[in-house]
Write a protein that binds this DNA or RNA. Sequence first.
DNA 1: ATATGCACCTGTGTGC
DNA 2: TGCACACAGGTGCATA
Length: 270
Amino acid sequence: MPELPEVETVRRSLEPHLVGARIADVDVRERRLRRPIQADIAVRLRRRCVQSIERRGKYLLFALDGPDTMLVHLGMSGALELRATAAACAPHDHVLLHLDGGRTLVFNDPRRFGLLRVAPRAALVELAAVGPDALGEEWPAARLKVLARGRRLSIKNLLMDQRGLGGLGNIYVNEILFRAGIRPRRAAASLRGREFEALAVALRAVLAEAVRLGGSSISDFRDGEGRPGYFQLHLAVYDRAGKPCRNCETAIRRVVVGGRSSFYCPRCQR
DNA sequence: ATATGCACCTGTGTGC
DNA sequence: TGCACACAGGTGCATA
């Protein structure tokens, strides 16, 4: 579920409730995530106060009032949910942070591809693999061109590589390439100047619109307060194989690029 | 160094 | 109804 717009939506929904809140107790019900939950996580989090919530790519960083920062990645199926009480656990509630005042922040993740780790910020090695944020920074055509220079992979795989720019996933790369009129299998280095220009415009437009609409609730995405997003109603190509292009009526095609389903309009995208 | 394929998990939808 | 299979928003590792 979560790419940049969904993670940013979660961040914004939690920020007003969590900044200033203190963690009273920690309940770990399942340690086996992408990396095992640290043995000392409760010691590190207990009595700590959240000072800010930042986002870098698809990672959330909860700065605490001690030496540590809590790093969270939602993987494919993860969710952070603020509950009014320390209510009975739902399936796949893996980590519960009980807050002063009675509310609980729950990390739920059926597939367990997510990550939750607490350490000094400089020790969060996962962040070393994430490039500058796709929305938090300016990405003019020239900067995208630099990323593509000398690379032999497809433009889709280039945009999905978190080391280049952080935050894009399969949904939004498909949507951005549609908006820019570029087929996902095009070699990144083969793009023309005006195509990089179109890509730069599409990148910002699609992400900004998706954030404005609270992300995409394809099956079950919800923000920290349980609210769905609405960008799924605006998807032009993702998961629309065989359906008419919203622009020209041509049937949307599905191909596999880099092992992932990719969707494009054969007429609007070249 | 760069690019690709697959494994890691559970849930859901589809066809037989 | 039950079963087998394909597929799903991501990432990391092994292999060419």
